[in-house]
Amino acid sequence: MRLSIGVTDFSWPDKPTEELTAVAVAAEDAGLDTVWVADHLLQADPHSTADSPMLEAYTTLGFLAGRTARIGLGTMVSAVTFRPPALLVKAVTTLDVLSGGRARFGIGAGHHDGEARAMGLPFPPAGERLARVEETVRLALRMWAGDESPFEGEHYRLERLIGSPRPVRRPPILIGGAGERRTLRLVARYADACNVFDIPDGGRTVRDKLAVLARHCEEAGRPYADIEKTISTRLAPGEPAESFARRCEEFAGWGIDHAVVITAGPWPVAGVETLGRAAALVG
């Protein structure tokens, strides 16, 4: 079971740059897998408010790349409507090159229509957004493979897919969302990882979603085991490492490989250290 932190709240009251750096370094020192950051222009965490500080995701990840050496870096997840696809792929590629191969490519259809209206972002219907996710992932795979031939999709048309420099290694692709008809089918066809939510029903929903994913993998002729199953969950304030480790063991019983952990408010270093102890207990 791998453990990562998800940074969704940047409202440290004092010296936020130093606090963010300390959290990322603590995560690396604790042996955690990845620092994921939310990709929003407005604060979207339900425990915060829309006018709370929110940093742009790829600038933040580039900053953290210069202050860490090993830990993975990615977005959980980038809405496909935020950036033109070539710009998004270039941002992920640049992060991978400058971090020495540590980028993870998290992408999804997006969900925050209020943010889109407030910030002047496009927000087409869900079906179109999912179609754009598929085209963007196809573009990324071709650019990272060095295929410069024209791309003709329903929504994107590129004359030449120039991807220079190439990434150090192809960034793993995580497609966010658990829609059973389209999103999980996209995961089965293209992704290296999926992401489900920790819903308090004893794992019934998670197991059901993973069973659907397994069926889509069978239809696509792809081994289900090839896809990393991640779950987004919270570390409760004051929760001890032993308690969280027991939860991780339960997640593993549901078929989960990797827990991405957020917390209410900005991460404290002590909370990250708790996760490190939990990771050591889980193994």
Rank of each mutant, 00 (worst) to 15 (best):
M54S: 14
M54T: 11
M54G: 15
M54L: 14
L55K: 10
E56L: 09
E56P: 11
A57G: 10
A57C: 15
Y58D: 00
Y58Q: 03
T59E: 13
T59S: 14
T60G: 12
T60D: 12
T60A: 09
T60P: 13
L61V: 11
L61K: 12
G62R: 14
G62K: 04
G62L: 11
F63M: 15
F63K: 11
L64I: 15
A65G: 13
A65C: 08
A65D: 06
G66S: 08
G66R: 06
G66I: 07
R67M: 12
R67L: 15
T68H: 13
T68M: 15
T68D: 14
A69R: 15
A69Q: 15
A69P: 15
A69Y: 08
R70D: 12
R70N: 05
I71Y: 13
G72M: 12
L73P: 07
L73V: 02
G74D: 00
M76Y: 14
V77L: 05
S78F: 00
A79W: 04
A79E: 05
V80G: 03
V80L: 01
T81D: 00
T81F: 01
F82P: 01
F82K: 03
R83L: 07
R83K: 13
R83I: 02
P84H: 14
P84I: 06
P84T: 08
P85F: 03
P85C: 07
A86T: 14
A86D: 03
A86N: 07
L88G: 04
V89W: 00
V89G: 01
K90D: 14
K90R: 15
A91Q: 14
A91M: 10
A91F: 10
A91R: 06
V92P: 02
T93Q: 08
T93E: 09
D96W: 04
D96G: 08
V97W: 04
V97C: 10
L98Y: 02
L98R: 00
S99F: 01
S99W: 02
G100L: 13
G100K: 07
G101W: 02
G101I: 03
G101S: 13
R102V: 00
A103H: 01
A103Q: 02
A103C: 06
R104T: 04
R104P: 01
F105C: 06
F105P: 07
F105V: 10
F105Q: 08
G106Q: 07
G106S: 05
G106T: 05
I107L: 08
I107A: 00
G108W: 05
G108H: 06
G108E: 06
A109N: 04
G110Q: 04
H111Y: 10
H111M: 06
H111V: 04
H112L: 13
D113R: 13
D113K: 09
D113L: 09
G114K: 09
G114M: 10
E115N: 05
E115R: 09
E115K: 12
A116T: 13
A116I: 14
A116R: 11
R117E: 15
R117Y: 11
R117Q: 11
A118N: 10
A118Y: 08
A118D: 09
M119N: 07
G120M: 05
G120H: 07
G120A: 12
L121W: 01
F123Q: 04
P124S: 08
P124Y: 11
P124H: 12
P125N: 06
P125G: 10
P125Y: 02
P125E: 07
A126Y: 09
G127T: 13
G127I: 03
G127L: 11
